[in-house]
Write a protein that binds this DNA or RNA. Structure first.
Length: 271
DNA sequence: AAACGTGCCAACCGCGATTAT
DNA sequence: CATAATCGCGGTTGGCACGTT
């Protein structure tokens, strides 16, 4: 069937978001939630398509986002999950709180991939490059080892990994990794994803905690109220927000034109 | 100091999946 | 059940920042 464009491109703004647009989007979502992305731009007074709003919110404005480079531990989790799941960035991101699929994807393409190649590991199969041709039927699932005896909790913290990946990590890890990284090196064989508890865990529904306030707002909270809440440090979300706010502060802002206590600015300050 | 090259990341595009009618 | 509308994902690109020559 023919598919219509997600939005009418005429009159729809594109390109980098401005601080003012961010402010509008944030105040709207915090006040009303985002029951329907398509309606968000119109209701929020933005000349953007809903898709763009969703992307901006999920990848940048969401208050629970972490910022900065992935830690060694996070990177290791990404590598391991990628070995099992492939380019299913959203699934991988779901296991790294505060990280977005876009962020992980970018980090993979710009950092991890190169690192693996440099270490002689095929970033697609997670196999040593020189072995690649001699084991045609091998895929990541057969290469990557999984310790199926590991407890779920341990698995959630750090998943098992292939010998190759472990080698890479051992070579490339920073001194801080050992402390942050609790990965067991007890690799073992795993016959299939279906039987792998890690993969089960990964593939199981990963519902939101329900704690995300922007999903639950009913429209009863207005920006003024939010600002007073913010002023009193009783933010509607938890500790992750501190980082968020600090990050905005790090951009050098205290723009009073923004949503009061929320120091919002454009994504990179230069935009 | 200027020109050029490279890296990085925010944002866009297209498509499949899901939901609504 | 068929079609339309919407959402969400993964791949790709554009442009800025930074490094090198």
């Amino acid at each position: 069937m023919g598919r219509q464009p997600c939005c009418d491109k005429l009159g729809v703004k594109r390109g980098p978001w401005t601080a003012e647009e961010d402010r509008k989007l944030i105040s709207f979502i915090l006040s009303n939630g985002h029951c329907c992305w398509r309606a968000v731009p119109k209701l929020a007074g933005l000349l953007r398509c809903g898709k763009s709003c969703r992307l901006r919110w999920t990848n940048y404005l969401r208050p629970d986002l972490k910022r900065g480079l992935l830690t060694d531990a996070e990177e290791q989790v990404v590598i391991d999950l990628h070995a099992k799941l492939g380019n299913r960035w959203s699934k991988i991101a779901a296991k790294l709180p505060g990280r977005t699929d876009n962020e992980i994807k970018n980090h993979w393409n710009t950092h991890i991939k190169k690192k693996l190649i440099k270490m002689g590991i095929d970033p697609v199969t997670h196999e040593p490059l020189d072995r690649k041709t001699s084991s045609p039927a091998t895929t990541s699932q057969s290469v990557v080892t999984a310790d199926s005896t590991k407890s779920d909790e341990a698995t959630k913290q750090q998943s098992p990994q292939s010998d190759a990946v472990r080698d890479v990590l051992a070579d490339s890890s920073s001194p801080t990794e050992s402390s942050a990284n609790t990965v067991s090196t007890g690799g073992s064989s795993s016959s299939s994803h279906d039987q792998d508890p890690l993969v089960k865990w990964l593939l199981e529904e990963d519902p939101p905690t329900g704690d995300e306030p922007w999903l639950n707002f009913t429209g009863s909270v207005d920006v003024d109220e939010l600002s007073s809440i913010a002023a009193g440090s009783e933010l509607p979300w938890d500790g992750a927000t501190d980082d968020w706010l600090l990050d905005y502060q790090d951009f050098g802002l205290g723009d009073s034109s923004l949503v009061d206590g929320y120091m919002i600015n454009s994504s990179n300050g230069a935009n």
